[in-house]
Every structure is written in C-alpha cells, then in structure tokens.
Design a protein around this nucleic acid. Structure first.
Lengths: 335, 335
DNA sequence: GTGAAAGCGCTAACAT
DNA sequence: ATGTTAGCGCTTTCAC
C-alpha cells in the first residue's frame, strides 16, 4: 500500500480511503481515485486482513454454531445462511457443537475471540431432568456482539431469534390425522427442554383437544437418548401396541425418530397407511417417500431470515430497537 | 498484556513467552511463570488474535472448501476433519462451493486472504464435455499454503491427497452381483470428469471382465445433469428396460442416484432383489434399508486422515518430502 | 483535498 | 534469564 502510494505520488491515506470506498465522502479527486483503483486492480492488491481487523476492530466475518451439519434439518438452514452471507461478501465460520454444551461454549468463545462481527446460534438443550449450563449463551447475549438464535430460543433470556411455528405445524398434523379417522393418536418425540419441541408438544395437545379427542386416549412416548441404536423406542412401541390402548395414529416430533418408528413397526408387521397413519416434522428425502404426512420445515427460509436479521443488526451499531422475533410458517405435505 | 507485565514487574516479552508455552525453553523462572499464568487465568486474558496473526503470520485456523454440506457423503467427511481439528485446537473455516468453480475459487481466495494455515479441498469437476477452469486450484497448489485434496484429485497436478479405493469398491460390487447370478449388469452414474468416478467406472469394467461377462452385455447410463428433477434417468431406464438388453443387475456409482433409480424402477413395477439386484456406492441411512448392496465409503476416516496429514504438513515448514497419497479402503455391506 | 503521526496488541531479534 | 527495540500493515485523527 505504501508502495502504491509512493508509485502514484499520493498519500497512503488517500489509498486507504479509496479502498474503503469513502473516496467521495472525503472529496478526493475523481482522477486520483480512478488512478488508485486501477493500480489496485492491476496488482490484485488486497489490504491485509489482519492489519485491517487489528486497526478497525471488525472482520467482515460471522460465526455460526450448530449442533451438527448432518441432518437435513441443520444443513438446509446453514445453506440458507451461507447463501445470504455469500451474497453480502461475509465469510461464515461454521462450528459444530455435537449437542455438547461445553463444546458449544468453546466454539463460541473461539469465534468471539476471532472477533466475528455477529453470531448465529442453534443452541443445544438438555433432556428433561438433565441440567446443562447455558451460562455461556446468556453471557454471549449480554455481550456486545450481535447474536441471532435459530430454530429455538432461551426461555430465560430475551434475544433476537428466528424460529418456525412449531405449535401450528403440530396442530395441523393432528388435525389431519383426526380428519382421516384417527381416534387414538400417540405422541413420540425427544424429551428435550427446547422451545421448538415444547411447542410441538403443546400444539399436539391443542390439536387433540380441538379434534374433540380425549387426551387420555393419546399415549406418549418420550425418548431420553439420542443414540440411534438405543432400544428405548422399540421397547416402548412394542409395549404400546401390545396394550389395550393400541393407537391408530402417531405423531412424531422429529424426522429422524420417525424413520426409526417406521423400522420398528415394520419389524412388528405394522404397515403405514394400512394399519396406522403417521405424521411427522420434517420432509422426506428426494425419491424416498415414506408415506407419512410431513410438516415441511422452512429451514432454508429460516436460515436466510436469520442471516438477514444478523446483517441488519451488525449494520446498526448502537441504535437498538427491541428484540426481533421472527416466526416462519412450515409447509404441509398434504396441502 | 502491557498492563499485566507492569503490574507484575516483569517484561512484556516474558509474558508473551509464557503465553506461548515457551517459557521453559527460554528458562524463565518457574515462579515468574507461575505468577504470570495465574494472573492471566484470573483475568481470563487472551492475546488478541489479530495482533498475534499480524505479527506472527499464522492463524491456527484451517480452511475447508466442499461442494456442499448436504450429502452424508460430504458431512461425514467434514465431521472427521472437524473432530481432529477440534482436538488440536484449530478452527476450521468451512465454505461451500455449490459445485460452482467460480464460487470455489472465491472461497479459496477468501480463505487464503484470511491466511489460513492450511486448506482442505474437495474440488468440483466438470461433466464430460464441459470445461471448467481449475486454474485456481493449480495456483493454490503452487502457493505456499499447505493443501490436502480430499476424495478426488487433479489429474494434471500432483498434490497431497486422501481418497478412497474407488476402483476396488466398484470391482467388489460387480463381483457380488455376478456371484448372485447377474449376467447383464448396467452402469448408472454421473458423467463427471472426476478421479473418483472415473476410477469407479474403471473398476466396474474390470469387474465385468473378471467375472467373465461381456462388456457388450452391460448397458451404460451416463447422467449429465445434477438436477434431481431431471427426467434423463427415467427416460434412459425406461428405454433400457423396454429393450432386448434388459439388465438383471445395476451398479450405481452414487448413492443419490441410486435412490432415484429405485423410485423409477418402483414406478415401473420392478422390485429390488426380486426382479433386479442393485449395488451402489454409499451406505443406507439408519433405519432405511434399501435392499441394495452398499459400498460403505469411509468418509469419516478420510476426513480424519486428511486433517491429520494437513496438520503434519503445517508443522513441517519447509522440509518438503514428496506428496503424500493416502488411499482408504471402503467397507462392503454384504461382508 | 492531502500528508504526518500515533497507535491497534502483539512477536521476534537483539542486546543485556 | 530479562529487558529493549523495532516492526507487522493498516486505520484514524488532526493539522496542513
């Protein structure tokens, strides 16, 4: 940069200003500006990222911490985020927490340490009964870095967030099952203390009530382990179907579990849409229709909205209006 | 840092050295070190990332550029990488190219600009017939930043890479199909100029020859579009099954396509393992057995190995031995 | 409009 | 073993 300035016979300040696009604001000669810009282009010169960050205190990068990048659930959201960020020339630094609070905390710390201009977080949550320290999230939210929570938020602390209308989706699913004749609808899901799942549970119960069904006819299977190999689901379903309260419909709060439910039922000789109807959160993969009713989660849209909101927040330094709560409505495979 | 030093009555250098963990090497008094460390811990002091990077010219971060984070294919690899990097306290900066050479180039440029200490790349490739500019990859490889290619490599330029034994897997799959009695085995895959797929094709042909089958009995369906909605596959399969050369086995080079094949066949009333046997690259998802023979790609392992190799390379500044070529063997679902 | 000067917070080479 | 010195490459304030 010094070299360029010397070569062109202008000041380093001038070069810096032009580079920043504030040439006009400082009324630098159009000719000079052009000269500088041309030279810069020709040399493919880029101001050193670290020097700039050190001096200016911002990085043009955002951090994103997600439980993983495996499930369609996550990676569609991530894609939504990245598309927006890419368009705005921000770099997304993606870290995964692996459903581990400590790892999440460490990643957040790392990202903040690298002075990301903003942070997107899909936080992990404890199973009912467990406690998990969410202190790091609270202090993150209290800090100066703009943060947008995605898909779920903290009950204890207000914040910006983008979520889907989980309760609505669950209610609609129950509606549908009831409409096709189900009378005994079971609920299957993780017993996680996480807003999205809690809302699905509530929506489910509301749906049951609205359909005029008795809650006592609805069995509930709450899973307490993420391990896909665990036998808890199989055992619970076996017991349920052996009982007098055999369901004619099942609502599954999570796509991953739904496939496991299907596998278990298949092993028991129970066929979807013949012996039982199933509705679940999450769309089927391409070319693998499951026969279940799917609540199509608007992940990409959530990701985009969250990214956009974060960009807005980063732009507005200071002038904090209240917290933004964006709720996106899911789609329904049967409509 | 200055403050700490002043407060403790030692030099800033001392603090810096202790922080870097080189206290012993410079024989700094154990007491002094302890004093410094305690104070640092107490203040939760962290040396500024950018100042350090600016002065020392390394960042403790690596870049990773992948086509996407969607397919199990990609994200298992990524997980393997991140696990290793996390263990070594490196930050992984993940970018996606969306199968777009220009985007790939731009992401690489960004990452290099942010001075990642090393780069992992799963590069995109053109369909046969297309040309895609891979100049950016070549110049990346020529540059000073250590790079490890993953899953595929460049024919034109040597480099470090970690791939799986694609040819072996394909050969084994054909063996298996032949062993269960298939005589007319069709090949279905993307017509991409990418080492992994080329090797699968070669392995397939070799398997056909070894099984004593005639290559002329093997139909070939080469796809030229990634769009999952395109009708090319359906049309080709329909034509093939209407012809006199109706196959009794199919080898599919990519998991995603395999499910589409299944859907098309199902629509035609053809049942897997009754009317036809299918072998494919890629494992089935949990609880969704497809009935196909699967070549289980060792993605996590590839990711780990690649990450480890990259770490090694970053450690060895200068002393470049030759390029490392690591080949990992896939698993077979039927063995 | 432009240039000089003082940092940003650290590292590293050198002298002590 | 410890302190001193000079940058790293840019931003930013302020005087010209």
């Amino acid at each position: 940069m010094k070299a360029i300035a010397a070569e062109l016979g202008v000041s380093r300040t001038a070069v810096s200003l032009v580079l920043k696009g504030e040439g006009d604001r400082y009324r630098i000669h159009a000719d000079t500006q052009k000269k500088i810009r041309d030279r810069i282009r020709k040399l493919n010169f880029k101001p050193d990222y670290f020097a700039r960050a050190l001096a200016s205190r911002h990085t043009h990068a955002i951090g994103a911490v997600f439980p993983n990048v495996f499930e369609p659930f996550m990676n569609e959201t991530i894609k939504g985020v990245e598309d927006v960020m890419y368009k705005h020339d921000y770099l997304m630094m993606l870290c995964t927490s692996a459903f581990d609070g400590a790892r999440e905390a460490r990643n957040i710390e790392q990202l903040i340490h690298r002075r990301v201009d903003g942070l997107l977080l899909m936080c992990t949550a404890p199973f009912a009964g467990e406690t998990i320290d969410q202190g790091h999230v609270a202090s993150l939210l209290a800090g100066p870095t703009p943060v947008v929570l995605v898909d779920r938020y903290l009950e204890s602390t207000d914040s910006h967030y983008v979520v889907q209308d989980d309760a609505w989706g669950a209610r609609k699913a129950v509606d549908k099952l009831a409409a096709i004749g189900c009378r005994r609808i079971a609920y299957v899901g993780f017993d996680l203390r996480i807003t999205s799942l809690v809302h699905r549970r509530n929506g489910f119960l509301q749906g049951i009530a609205e359909a005029g069904l008795r809650e006592s006819d609805s069995a509930t299977i709450m899973l307490h382990r993420r391990d896909p190999a665990s036998a808890d689901l199989r055992d619970a379903l076996t017991a349920l179907f052996a009982s007098s309260g055999r369901p004619d419909g099942i609502f599954v709060s999570t796509s991953g579990i739904a496939y496991k439910v299907r596998a278990v039922l298949a092993a028991m000789g129970i066929e979807i849409n013949k012996d039982i109807a199933i509705a679940k959160f999450g769309a089927d993969p391409d070319f693998s229709p499951s026969g279940m009713y799917c609540i199509k989660q608007p992940h990409a849209e959530m990701g985009q909205k969250a990214a956009q909101l974060l960009l807005d927040l980063m732009r507005m330094t200071g002038s904090s209006r209240g917290y933004e709560h964006i709720v996106v409505r899911p789609g329904l495979s049967w409509e």
